[in-house]
């Protein structure tokens, strides 16, 4: 899931300085299950903002709304009606949700209420940890399902750095050493010999540098879209 957390209320309030009526929109997927942008969090943020602004003698009306998925056009359609009487929209979605709203409603101010943190999992109740950086060329087959890109502070591919102590990372003792775990896992799988071969430098061309990435599946595309592009 995509993990996000609420911005400080002060920062959100600053974004809404000139607004008198806003629509707060939650998202029913990732940010609902990480308790940052579900219906309860929308209600909590709406009440907090209303109270803060009321205390400051500048009342703010906050309309609460939820969509199943902010990152897909079709789910955003019902919001068009609710946006008619507001001067800004506060998205409690991840960065993708905010941008999808901004693209769909180009004349409306769309503001982020959350900071999007990472792709991860709930490692314990109330605790979320990063597991994937979307590097674009997965190596989990070689590392026993433990990612050296997201979990090794130095993103090493040929064993630990030598600074780890007792299975903990030297950068942060709270973090387990990814390569310690990879080795233990390989031993449990009887595959530790596989780790002896040298992994060549990774091709980072698929990773985050170089602007927006795109994935295209021509078999899924609309024929008319492909025709249009062919004629351009």
């Amino acid at each position: 899931m995509i993990v996000a957390e609420k911005k400080p209320l002060e920062a959100i309030a600053r974004m809404l300085e000139g607004s008198g009526r806003v629509l707060a929109v939650g998202c029913g997927t990732c940010v609902t299950v990480c308790f940052s942008g579900g219906s309860k969090e929308v209600a909590t943020l709406a009440a907090s903002l209303r109270m803060k602004r009321s205390i400051e003698d500048r009342p703010l009306a906050v309309v609460e709304a939820m969509v199943q998925r902010q990152c897909e056009w079709e789910y955003l359609e019902p919001l068009a009606e609710q946006m008619k009487n507001v001067d800004a929209v506060l998205s409690l979605g991840c960065g993708v949700g905010v941008q999808t709203l901004a693209e769909r409603f180009p004349t409306m101010r769309i503001l982020p209420a959350l900071n999007t943190l990472f792709m991860g999992l709930p490692s314990a109740q109330g605790v979320w940890e990063e597991r994937c950086q979307g590097c674009g060329s997965c190596v989990l087959d070689k590392t026993g399902g433990i990612c050296p890109v997201s979990r090794c502070a130095k993103q090493l591919f040929n064993g630990p750095c030598g600074g780890s102590q007792n299975g903990r990372c030297e950068v942060d003792e709270a973090t387990p050493c990814a390569w310690h775990m990879i080795w233990e896992r390989a031993e449990a799988l009887g595959m530790s010999e596989d780790l002896m071969s040298i992994e060549p430098p990774k091709d980072w061309g698929t990773s985050r540098d170089g602007g927006m990435r795109r994935m295209v599946r021509n078999d899924l595309r609309l024929p008319e879209d492909q025709d249009k592009e062919g004629n351009e």
Partner: peptide
């Protein structure tokens, strides 16, 4: 914590 942020 929220009350502090709100101003109560």
């Amino acid at each position: 914590g929220l009350l502090c942020e709100i101003g109560l």
